[in-house]
Amino acid sequence: MKINFPVVRLLVIKDWQLFQKQLALYVLAGFVALCFIGLGKPWAFYVGSLMLIIVLVASACFSISTSLLVERKDKTLAFAMSLPVSPLDFTAAKLAGNLLTFAVPFVIILGGTVGVVLATPLPDGLVVYSLLVFAWIAFAFAVSLAVAMSVESEGWATFAMIGSMVLINPYLMALGQVPAIQTRIAQDAIVWTPEAVGLLAVLGGLGLLVLAATAWHHARKPAFY
């Protein structure tokens, strides 16, 4: 079976048009969080970084829940499937659409974060730490997306989303226990230790693996039901 790219593009544009206003609001909220971080005061840094994590988690969950879970619940999925699409086209469109709606605010906020850290008196060592935090959210998004695409149950999909995102807490604690990462945060230089690079590679690789396995599983389905 071959992918029908014009139809995949049509479905991706459809999802983008449906969610673009909300995504713009997430980007705006992300910039507000970065403004707090950029103030350079301890309380503002705490408020800003907390808000930034909340915005990133919310935008990742929004993308999955609206394009997959709400589409099932609102019964608009039947309309989308009545278009000339195969299960493979639909899977490709859902993967690409979700990655796009997640990646656009994610990359903008990531760029903003790096910019704020480098442009303000904040220590440049925070860049590596920030990237590790962003990497976890991207990994949690990949796992949540894979589960939401693979199960019919809204409960399990929600559990995967909340579970993987909440795990950022112990993840941050664990980062604090790795001296090669923890001691570099306060330095005014970007230092790529093997531990930091390894962690980024593991999270990135696992995320891609999960998405590839999901795509492969769905590509083999001859029909939707």
Binding site: Q17, L18, D74, T76, A78
Partner: peptide, 10 residues
């Protein structure tokens, strides 16, 4: 189909 819905915000 009877259980098919359109996107209500559009």
């Amino acid at each position: 189909s009877e259980d098919m819905r359109l996107y209500r915000t559009q």
